[in-house]
Design a protein around this nucleic acid. Sequence first.
DNA 1: ACTGCCGGGCA
DNA 2: TGCCCGGCAGT
Length: 464
Amino acid sequence: MCHVKYRGKAQSSPQQQQRAQSSSGWGWGVGKHQHESIISPSAVSKSKCPLRSWGGNLECWMFFSQLYPTNNDRPMCCAAARGVGSWLSRSQQKLREEGRKPSGHADKEVMAATVLTSLSTSPLVLNPSSAPPVPEPGSRAWKDVLSNSYSSSTSGNWSWDTSDQSVPSTPSPPLSNDANKNFPLLTPGDDVNEDVPESTHFMFEDPIPRKRKNSMKVMFKCLWKNCEKVLSTSSGIQRHVRTVHLGRNTDSDYSDGEEDFYYSEIEINMDSLTEGLSSLTPTSPTTCGPPPVFPPPLTAVPHSERINMNSSHCPTPTLLSQSAPSTLCHIRTDHAYQATAPVRIPLGHELAGLGNGNGTRPGHGTGNGISVSWQSPHVLFKGVLGSVIPVRTVSIGEKRQPAAITHSTVIKNHALITPAPKSAPGTRKPRGEAKKCRKVYGMEKRDMWCTACRWKKACQRFTD
DNA sequence: ACTGCCGGGCA
DNA sequence: TGCCCGGCAGT
């Protein structure tokens, strides 16, 4: 199962971080002391682990250098963690059902679950809007969760180095006295389905139906590639996935929950639909372009993702609908590891990347640095298309969804997001590469320039 | 800072 | 129309 391995002190220099990120495996860390954890690809049931969406071979990187320095950073991690936690919780349950106590690798798996689910259940994520910055306790409590739970139960491979005081404190969620309730631990033997705070219940079970306005219609959309089946019930969509895509027996009630990854819950604002968004149909539920393509099994999308049709969640719907034909807008996702855009973490906030699964540095590339943002009811996502800060870039799912962010998309985003130049763009002639009179003759021989050059016009002698 | 050149003013 | 130059944008 999951081999959680401490691989030594983390890389403090960018070069070291770079080297580390270019290796395989996945890991996480705190502050300057990053710890790597490796999930053995061969040992993990790929068909169950949501991490497969990061590359199928589970070679993905998570570096949480400063845990959740900002609200904006958290959902990525949390979402991923939540997916893992859900999966691991199932694994636990299966172990119990089989009458076995998790131990050894399984124990480490549970530890991983604790780490990840703790991430995912942070109160800030659950309710970031009510989270004024309070120094320190967030990460500390997080570490406490870990140390209290597993510092003594692991075989020395695992540790949290909390001694490093150089890690700057960052805004953290307010933790009430019962903060631990918001950090449900997956400890061996616990029944993950019992006494789970309601706020975290949705992690492990089907989403609790939330109070919605009457105008919000919840539908369930199949995310299997080229399948846009939309059904009104989760059971229906599960049955659809199970029978149509997973090839399982219709009559069998057996379900291991894998169907969850292949559909998403979408909210359709009936008011908006009737007020002029009639072009939006349940089969194309986002206003941001075509639905994301999730080629299974590499791209498993847990069901708790919700694509929100309510345009009020998108601050600039027109712009985003044109510029981000993916899941950038209107998607309220609890499993953002399927997000399509690299996310630039604000400077000073060392949440480094979730790797792209092939061992390359996440986000290394175009340097366009186009900032985008999208909002969910839980959190405002901010990111960058064409990341520019490799170490501080989260590049999630880009390998899995290469079509989501295309070059043309980036161009379009750039044109749409960046302020329009004062003069009309495109009218200006591209700068020629040929040497001009000024270069050839120099200022001293200005009289030898062509007339145009002398007049500061486009050179007529050395044209391109 | 340097370079190319657009847009506009002036005679 | 010829000449010149401010200023923008790319390198």
